[in-house]
Structure formats: structure tokens, C-alpha cells
Design a protein around this nucleic acid. Sequence first.
DNA 1: TATGAATGAGCTTTCATTCAT
DNA 2: TATGAATGAAAGCTCATTCAT
Lengths: 211, 211, 211, 211
Amino acid sequence: MRQAPGDAPPEEDTTMSRIQLRNRGLILEAALEVFSKQGFRGATLDQIAVEAGLSKPNILYYFDGKEDIHVTLLDQLMDRWLAPLREIDPDGEPLEELMCYVHRKLEMSQEFPRESRLFANEILQGAPRIGPHLERDLQPLVDWASALIQRWVDAGALAPVDPRHLIFSIWATTQHYADFETQVGVLMDSAQVHSGAKAHLDVLFRRLLTP
Amino acid sequence: MRQAPGDAPPEEDTTMSRIQLRNRGLILEAALEVFSKQGFRGATLDQIAVEAGLSKPNILYYFDGKEDIHVTLLDQLMDRWLAPLREIDPDGEPLEELMCYVHRKLEMSQEFPRESRLFANEILQGAPRIGPHLERDLQPLVDWASALIQRWVDAGALAPVDPRHLIFSIWATTQHYADFETQVGVLMDSAQVHSGAKAHLDVLFRRLLTP
Amino acid sequence: MRQAPGDAPPEEDTTMSRIQLRNRGLILEAALEVFSKQGFRGATLDQIAVEAGLSKPNILYYFDGKEDIHVTLLDQLMDRWLAPLREIDPDGEPLEELMCYVHRKLEMSQEFPRESRLFANEILQGAPRIGPHLERDLQPLVDWASALIQRWVDAGALAPVDPRHLIFSIWATTQHYADFETQVGVLMDSAQVHSGAKAHLDVLFRRLLTP
Amino acid sequence: MRQAPGDAPPEEDTTMSRIQLRNRGLILEAALEVFSKQGFRGATLDQIAVEAGLSKPNILYYFDGKEDIHVTLLDQLMDRWLAPLREIDPDGEPLEELMCYVHRKLEMSQEFPRESRLFANEILQGAPRIGPHLERDLQPLVDWASALIQRWVDAGALAPVDPRHLIFSIWATTQHYADFETQVGVLMDSAQVHSGAKAHLDVLFRRLLTP
DNA sequence: TATGAATGAGCTTTCATTCAT
DNA sequence: TATGAATGAAAGCTCATTCAT
């Protein structure tokens, strides 16, 4: 049984005091709020400081600068972002594994829309800061998942499909509800969005993948 | 036969001289390049000026400011962006009309990736400048299209589907190739992207919609 | 007849407009005043801006930053500073050539005390910005002058003396009146300084060098 | 026999514990290193704290601030700096007394180059912190030495020379090897500097002063 | 129509100093 | 005695915009 790559959990530096951990947490939470809304250049340390309830120099006591905060945020994000893909079980029932992945991604889009937008912002601008991560972490993981899906297709457990384009479609449709939330909100009663999205994507991908 | 709303052509000010038209064009082209790459706040007038080959004060002779350029760009974009949806023919064959729409959107994603990213940037940041347009132009158009699709579904010409979620899925999957181009480029040989995407999306939506 | 090296005059960029030349001049003059008094780190753009009668951003319109101003100043200074040494005539009467050099240096110390202090500040701090100049411009010139003096000594035209230490003594004693002006002013009536210094250094070096 | 003024030893506060004395010493040593290299404004408390191996607030427990450290350093320096001049023996052999002073000053330049540069930095910037000391301590001492030298000249024990300019020349030539060490190092093999300087200055001043 | 020159407002960051323990 | 944490003031620099021609 093959294993998804990159499973090592991030080593949290345990030398931080409680107050340090708390304030770093406050700052990252505030920065996520601001960066995901305004983008990197649009965000200011002032906004982050106000949002975190700390003074601006105090922010810089915990991080080396605006960029350091952003990079730390993206680093943390990548782990969480790729987790659902890693959790696909090569030994599970192919169709259900993939549908489960779709639903997991949709849930994350609903639970962590700011993270989704932070990521989208970064990719939109050419991944100037997360670029290396993509090649180091994302690429091998997608290679692994694609090979797995291809084997399932070859075994007749799934309808023929290009694994990478399938993955793109799953990402696109699920993250859309977070990234384009403003537009979705204009066009649809927000109460119906989540349940409707789940049912819709279930049909969409089940029909595609059922052999 | 009903008519898609919003067809009124934008009133171009015909009092502009040839050189004025040319320079406004140069500026908008340069601004599209810069805004789509850097976002609104990340872009600078200097970059736009250099890209356009004009001086910075000259830029401001043609436009009232950075925001004016951006808004003008978004205004122009909206028309082009919504055109494929308007072109759905209520009297055409339902499935083919929608598949045609999918392909048209995918082509636009390939032909106008900068426009797609400009739009994505704007929505991501909460549509601070394009918000009114969404309600004025987009909403009625989507209402119209949704009603049309619903009638097709009710008539049994399409498999049951939520029209709005269908539209979101089409937008998401097609624009993904432009908006997340950086990520797609890391994960897939760029030569295979376009043809593969077309075939993939054709299967994806044809299976969904075939009654 | 050998020629002192490094004679190429600095090419002034003739593409500058009159107002540009004037303002760059104002800035450099102000910067000389401030840098020579406060050192590089001690000086602020605000001080320079006030001294120049320009706004701070306007300063940065003409120079790329604080360091650029400082480097430009040092570049200009080096030429002026080394000129007297270059003007020693290998074919002149040795003792008189050197005494003339002493007097020329003393005059420069009186005429350009700020330049002397600017230079002293830079060397004191380890020549972080002018270091390369020292090796490129100063070293070959001093090598040339030292060889010349050595030949004069060997020919019996001067009393035996180590050329480099001689040069150091000349620099030290003449520049002292500029660099330590504050101290000199405390210890001596400033009216007597210049004439007294000239007579004193004349005797000092004439006695040393007369065969 | 007249006595050089200013001999009173500084009242050390004897209530300091051993650890206090040790830490004040560490701080002053570190501050000397940093101030002499970077100047007052260029130096930061962080650098001093790192150099001293103490925390920044701890530094401020022992001193009232950056300026206090600097002033303390200069105070200590003045005593050491003026000592050789005080040690001139009015009853000694005039020429040898002065030559001995020259050599003593040269040795100090070699042994305490950081102190020399600290002093030079302070004077260069107009003696903003040491100014009062100059008038209180230095001036009477130089007055005393000048009168002594003048009497020696009048007595025919020395060649005619302006005492104050003589003193300036001695200061300038000896301190030059410390203050302009960077420049000297570029122009001369550092192994030859010290011995060469001693021989050179011996000749320079002996020729000047021998009746 | 075009642009060199200029600037107010605001940005990130540094730093001497203070707070709280 | 010592130090992690915090901050006001100010630094260098950027940038959209305006001025003057």
C-alpha cells in the first residue's frame, strides 16, 4: 500500500512562552483576516495591528516584517490545504473516496474561506512567495494522487477521466464558493448556498466518475 | 422570444480625437497587464506609465486617477464577460446551447486570462469597485438564464440541476485555467492544458446535463 | 617624464537641465554640511531637506536615497582631495615641490574643512562606502608619489625619509586643523590658527626634508 | 616644581558590589568597541548589549541611557588621554622630555586605537558631549604645557617653535595611525607601520626641536 | 497634449526607552 | 538584579496626485 507523501507534521517550536504563542496566534489570525481581504500589498501593518489589538512595533517584535507574517501564514496554510488530498485511501472504494474528497474540500471552503482566498490571492499574483512550496509539496502529492486515480480508471472502477483535470475541477468548484463568495452572495440566497452546493457537486462528480 | 437583458451598447464618447483614443487604449491595455498581475493596491501608476510608454502625468490627463482606470477597465470587462451568457439562445437545443456556453467560456479563459484575473482579483477583495455592477448587470442576467435553464429542466430537455449552481460550476471550472494558471503550470505540461481541459469539461457537463 | 595616474576628469552628465543641476547642487551642498557634522548615520534626510530648502520627497526625486547622496559626495570629494598630490611635478625642485604640497594641503584644510571632516568620518568608520575608491584611486597615486620621493631621496635631493610616513604626516598635520577644529578653537585664538599653522608646518617639514 | 593640573582621581562610587563593577566594565568595554566603530548615532544599544553579553534593559539598569554610557566613556578617556602630557617633567631635559611625549603618544595610539577613534568621533562632530571637559580639563593643561615649552624655547633648550602648533602636530601625527588606520592599512603593509612610524616621528620632531 | 518637478500622506521599519515581573 | 514584552517617536522611502510650463 503506497502512502501519500509529505505527511510529516510541522514541528512547532516548543521554546515559545505562553504569551508568545498567544500573541503570535493573535497576529496570524489578524493577518489572515487582512491579507485574505486586501491581498499582500493592500494589507498594512496598521490594519493587522488594530485587528490583533497590538501595537505596530509589537507586531514586529514577533515577526521579522510584513513578509515574514505572510510567509508564515502560507506555510501553515499549505499543510491544512493539502491534507484532504493526502487522506484519500488507496485501498478504499474508488468512487466513494473521491466523492468524500469533494465533500471534504467543499467543507473546507465553507469552514476556511479566508484561507482559500489567501491562497487564491497568492496564486493569482503568480505565487511570488509560495512558488517553491508548490513544486516541493504540491507537485509530488498531485503526482501521487493522479497515478492512483489513473490506476482506478484502468481497473474500471471509475469512468475514464484525466486525473489532473479532475482534480482541477474539484478544486475550482469547491473553492469557488469561498473565493467568489461576494458574487455568489449577490446571485443566491446565502442560506441555500451550502446545502445546494453539496447536492450539486455530488451529482456533478458522481455522474462524471461512475463507470 | 425573450431577450437577454443588458444589450445596450456602451455609449463611446465620439468627441475623442484619434490620438486620444489611441492613448486611452494604450493606458487600458497597460493597466490590464499590471492590475491583473499585481492587484489594485499592488499596481502603481509608474508601472502602468512605463508599460504604456507614457508619462505619469499624461496618464492622469486621460483618466481621473488610478481608481478611474480600474473602474473603466472593469466596466469594459463586464460587457465582454457576460456576452457568452447573453448569447445562449432560448430557442436552441438546450444541451447544445449549454455545452456551447461552456466551450465559449473556456475559450475566453484562454484568450483573455488577464481579464479573468482582473475580475477574480476584484471579487476576491469583496468587489469594492464592481459591486454595483454585479447587482445591476449580472444579477438580472443570471436570473434570466436561470429561469431559462429551469424551464428546460422542467421540460425534460435537461437532467435535473440547480441552474445557479450549474452556472457557478461552469464559471469556476473554466476560469480556473486562467486564474490559477501558475498552479496549473506547475502541475501539468502547459501544452496539454487547453485540449485536455476542453475534452474534460465537455464530458463533465455533458454527463451532468444529459437527461 | 612620468605622469600621475587617474587624471581623467569625471564626465558630468550633460543631459541635466538647469534646474536639475541647481537642485542637485543644493542637495549636495546641504548634505555636505549635515554629513560632515553628524556622520552618515547621524544625518537625516529631514536635516538635509531643510538645509537645502527642498521637501524630503523632492530630495529623493534627485537621488536614489540617503546612501546615494553620500556616495556621490564622496566620489566628488576624492577627485578634489587627491588633486594636490597629483600636481606634484616630478621635474620640479624636490624640496619646493613637497613644501608646496604641504601648503596646498593646508589651504584645502582651511578652504574645505567640511570635506575634510566628511572624509575623516568615512575613514574612521572603516571606509564602508569609500573603501573601493581607496584601493582603486588612492593606492596607485600614493605608490607613484612614494616612488618619486624615494628617487629624490636616493638622488640626495631630500634628507632620508620614509615616503609613505612622510605623506601620512603631511595629511595628519594639515587635516588636523579641519578635523579637530573644535578642539583647536578651544585651545587657540582662531585668528592665529591659519598663519601660525602655515609657518609651523613650513618649519616642521623643511627641517625634516632639507638634506 | 610645578605640578600639572587636573590630577584629582575620579571618585569611584565604592558602594558598588563586585557584580555591579564587573557589569559596568563589560558595558563600557562593549560600548567602546561599538561607539568607536560606528560613532554615537550609528551605534545601537542592541549592538552594545550583544557585545557585552547582557540584555538591553539590564544595560539601562546600570546606565541612565545611551548618552550616559557615552559620557562615562569619554570621562574615563580624558584622564587616560591627557596623562602623557601631564607626565612631562618640567625639570627634565627639554628635548628628551618632548621626544618621550611623542613616543608615549604613539604608543597610546597603538595600544588604544579605539579610544583614539572615540575621541576623534566626538571632536569631529563638534564635541557636543565632551565640550565642557575640553575647557575644564584640557585647556589649563595645554596652557601649562605651552608655557613650559615656551620657557624651554626662551632658554635656548629648544629650537624656536610655537608650543601649541607643536602639540597639535604631535597629536595629529601620532593619532593618525589609529584614526586613519583603515587608510593606512590600504597604503602600507601593516607589519611595517609601527616601527616605521616610531622612527619617522623621532626624526621629524627631533629635527624640528633640536636647537 | 505632454511632462519635468514637486509634495502630502502614508508605508515599513528601527530604536531608545519603559513596563511588568 | 535581570529580562521578556511593549511602545512612542522618528527614520528612510513610496506613491497617487498636483503644479507649472
